[in-house]
């Protein structure tokens, strides 16, 4: 009923426009809700609010973007909201790894195939961090120390339970045979501080969460969970840049993990809707502000769209299923 009238109204609007042009040039007729399946202040939230700011500043859209946080049930609330808004073109959602992990870990019924893929914005890196006061200089030294201390004696701090941080921790355990006690916290900033305060022994924080403490000389990066080194060569500390951090693979810890920061829409939207947003994000990504944000957070700036994006997501999903199965994180397992 509601959408019926909305469609009627947009049809009325469309009728005013010259026919023919309409197929390619759909534009939002009201404010666009940008759903964030995570809390305020986190990485996804920052990215959405930056997009909102860039769009407003450069006038990239006639209507506004309204960020809405729907963090309940590890993001399930946000995904279910978009899933149930079939055909609604004024609603987009940013995703984290919880796109895969939440349905697997909680059994809440949704899957990325219920949504329409739009575009990948970036991929977030993960770095293995230890307190700068500890003697460990390489992943090997650290892992050996974990093994020597005995199973469960060393503590790994991370954000959330059965999500990306704990998955990486489990992957390290499977690869090396070392055993951590994983301690879940609510936010990445808190995790970094717990490491600085010596309450945990290591973390796998995203660069942006830990960079301030790295600069301040309190934390030490051991390796990045990437296949190749990060490209940012500008010095962050007196001696090191992001590019100087070795990959975990080259240090003998053969694990790579990147977190999706991508955009999806409701199911059943038309191709012109998707194309509109792909065009919008292309303009956003061309701005200096966006480039600066990517560098600040040492993001991997892969930005797939269309078919390639869907394929990438499908591969990641399969990988998450096997990683989580191996770690015993699947609901009812």
């Amino acid at each position: 009923m509601k959408t019926g009238i909305a469609l009627a109204v947009s049809a009325a609007f469309a009728a005013v426009l010259p026919t023919g042009a309409q197929a390619q040039t759909w534009e939002p007729t009201k404010n666009v809700e940008f759903i964030i399946p995570a809390g305020t202040g986190g990485g996804a939230d920052q990215m959405v609010r930056a997009v909102q700011g860039i769009v407003a500043k450069h006038g990239l859209m006639k209507q506004s973007i309204l960020p809405i946080n729907k963090a309940g049930g590890a993001g399930a609330e946000g995904f279910l909201d978009v899933k149930s808004a079939a055909g609604e073109p004024h609603k987009i959602i940013i995703t984290l790894s919880n796109l895969f992990t939440t349905p697997l870990a909680t059994g809440v019924p949704f899957n990325w195939r219920d949504l329409t893929p739009v575009q990948m914005l970036a991929l977030d890196n993960f770095v293995l961090w230890v307190n700068a006061k500890t003697p460990y200089k390489t992943p090997k030294e650290f892992i050996d120390a974990v093994k020597k201390a005995g199973p469960g004696k060393m503590k790994m701090g991370g954000t959330g339970a059965k999500q990306e941080d704990q998955i990486i921790t489990a992957a390290i355990e499977q690869k090396t045979g070392a055993k951590f006690t994983y301690i879940p916290f609510k936010g990445g900033g808190a995790v970094a501080t717990q490491l600085v305060g010596g309450h945990v022994d290591a973390t796998v924080n995203n660069p942006i969460e830990a960079v301030a403490q790295w600069k301040g000389g309190n934390l030490r990066p051991l390796c990045v969970f990437e296949l190749k080194r990060m490209p940012y060569k500008e010095k962050v500390t007196a001696t090191m840049s992001w590019a100087d951090i070795p990959t975990c693979k080259e240090s003998g810890l053969d694990i790579d993990y990147l977190m999706l920061r991508g955009v999806f829409m409701a199911p059943g939207v038309k191709p012109e809707h998707v194309n509109y947003y792909i065009g919008l994000f292309a303009k956003v990504m061309a701005t200096p502000e966006w480039k600066k944000l990517m560098e600040e957070g040492a993001f991997n700036i892969t930005a797939l769209k269309g078919r390639e994006y869907a394929d990438w997501v499908a591969r990641e999903e399969a990988r998450h299923v096997s990683l989580m199965k191996g770690a015993g994180f699947i609901a009812g397992q």
């Binding site: 009923m1 509601k2 009238i5 909305a6 109204v9 007729t29 009201k30 404010n31 809700e33 506004s64 309204l66 809405i68």
Partner: peptide, 17 residues
């Protein structure tokens, strides 16, 4: 404040939805 409150048929009819 750009907070979207629940709207119904009337707002949609007026194009405010």
């Amino acid at each position: 404040f750009k907070v979207s409150l629940p709207k119904g048929p009337l707002e949609n009819l007026l194009g405010l939805g």
